[in-house]
Design a protein around this nucleic acid. Structure first.
Lengths: 340, 340
DNA sequence: ACTTTTTATGCAACCGGTTACATTAATCTA
DNA sequence: TAGATTAATGTAACCGGTTGCATAAAAAGT
């Protein structure tokens, strides 16, 4: 039905091997022959059948990004979207394509995505640390199957991984508040079962220590993802007899909710209280005042992850790559104290 | 290196054909034989090589979603992200995988994605109407290659397509303002070169006509995507000697910017002016007051598009499928007048 | 001019499944 | 129970490229 390499070979008066070599820019072929073959291809409207190509050399030129997003929260959080965009941007000019798999739509045992590996559907995987499973990792390493983890894994894993520098993020945001003369600085994060939240807290504590502040357990809270959570956490703080005058939030939406609570109490931002948040998602610019945030460059994270993976695919190595990306603070209205 | 069908055949004492039939759940095979083969597979840790499978039957079980997102705007707009999520959700349980291609990272002639089709890398395509090109469409139709367009194309195209009902969206949003006793209702949309904006305007005009309102050219504006655009457009309205008291925006962010301008003028929302926007993106809930929006169900759009495509892949038909999805209004703070 | 080396091309096996067709085993019919 | 029909399995060609090895052609060496 389609035009095959045989048709081209016949039309150009050469063998299929020669046509194949032209396709692959082998440097064995004479310019004249190349020319002949190219012409034949053009005349016949030939395109190489990619499935056959993959079959012959046992690779697909596809890599997959595995995500685990839940429906309700999916669209508030552009996390994977930005990473995805970065990956695509990097691999596409190199002739690779990106496949997206959401583990949650497969809903088996949390390793359904591993079919991609077992069935050789892709040449490599990028997956979030939350989907790491000991057995699967062992199998992939045995077969030298390339994969890169997004997020720092527990140190029992020696794999390729990449993450933003969460400790640094915790430290610079806290330091920023300290430098703006806030004195009682609180820290509100997601679950500290997650290593990245532990690291963020670590950064917060480091900053306090460096400036001679004592950490105060009352000012360290855990849990919360939503605007509503932020609202109620803030109100809990207000019930304390000595509430914080500065808060580091590790989530934009939580900060957004806290903002409402603060306004309701008639407390001035940033004069009476300073706020810093993480993840410079678009919402951070929409509040009034705009939220000071740690900007994590997820586009770059995607690019770096992809680069790491392609390196592994193209020249497999036994030493694993690891990378921590710097973050920077974007100073906005919630932390710029007029004076004091 | 890997375990192949031959190994399984030998271990089970049957032919490769039988193993293949077991793999494909052919109903020719005896339960006993099936059992034998399954056991052999299990013992050997066999997984079918998917590349070989694809090669044998010339399909990939992959479909691609082609997008065209520009970097700066990419993350404000979860448009494709939600659609993508819907597609993935639909196709995954049916054994298909999703590939994502961003035309803008390929940056050739706007049809770089067509390689996917020519090289048979995927079984079908879902692409936005903005990427439609006459010649390419002709070629794809000649070869009966399945594809679905997101967005209503100009009527010179007879293809499978799906869109939200933009006229309905324009009409219900306008009607809602009319019913809330707003009298001078403006309409602010993106470029009217795009059919969907024409349709939205059409809906607006229809609603006005149904309620005996005369359209007023001063109240119909075009252009703008950002918060800043919304801010300046709103200020232009305020310069008019008879500004609107109700506005339909076709973009969340534009409405967000307009909101700031309105507040600065000390005008009360929703008592003095009512706002409705399109696209119920997460930001709509973050403003104060929250923005009344037309909710377009992009998750469903993705699901429907995928369903359309798989239908086309599984049983090709000559009659094209078209679908307009209903929209609904989510009433929030910017349009709930206390009384009048 | 004749061997030796290098370069360009062809031959054919191979990648791992699928499936049309052939063959054998099982079941049915009279 | 032989003969016809149906069900289960096997044989081998095929999908469309790639590539090791053989060979032919060209270039270099003596």
């Amino acid at each position: 039905m389609g035009v095959t390499i045989k048709d081209v070979a016949k039309a150009a008066g050469v063998s299929t091997a020669t046509v194949s070599r032209v396709l692959n820019n082998s440097n064995l072929i004479t310019p004249q022959t190349t020319e002949k073959v190219r012409n034949a291809m053009r005349e016949l409207g030939y395109f190489p059948n990619n499935i056959a190509r993959s079959f012959a050399n046992q690779n697909t030129y596809i890599i997959a990004l595995v995500v685990d997003i839940e429906e309700p929260t999916a669209f508030n959080n552009p996390y994977f979207y930005q990473i995805q965009y970065g990956i695509e941007k990097y691999i596409c000019p190199k002739g690779y394509y990106l496949m997206i798999v959401n583990e949650n739509t497969l809903n088996h045992n949390g390793t359904a995505f591993s079919k991609l590996f077992f069935e050789k559907r892709v040449d490599g995987l990028i997956l979030p640390v939350s989907l790491l499973h000991k057995n699967l990792v062992k199998k992939m390493e045995e077969q030298k199957f390339p994969f890169v983890i997004i997020g720092e894994p527990e140190n029992s894993y020696d794999t390729n991984w990449i993450d933003i520098n969460n400790k640094m993020a915790g430290e610079i945001s806290t330091t920023h508040l300290i430098e703006n003369q806030y004195k009682r600085i609180a820290f509100v994060s997601g679950s500290r079962k997650d290593l990245f939240n532990k690291n963020r807290l670590d950064g917060y504590l480091t900053a306090l220590a460096k400036h001679g502040f004592q950490p105060n357990p009352d000012l360290i809270k855990e849990g919360g993802f939503s605007k509503e959570d932020g609202y109620s956490i803030m109100n809990e703080f207000f019930k304390q007899n000595n509430p914080p005058d500065g808060i580091v939030f590790t989530d934009n939406l939580v900060a957004f909710g806290a903002l409402s609570a603060i306004k309701e109490h008639g407390i001035k931002i940033p004069d009476d209280i300073g706020l810093v948040s993480f993840d410079n998602f678009p919402v951070a610019e929409l509040s009034d005042p705009q939220i000071t945030t740690v900007d994590i460059d997820l586009l770059d994270l995607g690019i770096q992850a992809a680069s790491m993976l392609l390196k592994e695919i193209q020249l497999p190595s036994t030493t694993k790559q690891q990378s921590l990306l710097s973050v920077r603070l974007i100073k906005r209205g919630t932390s710029k104290r007029s004076q004091r």
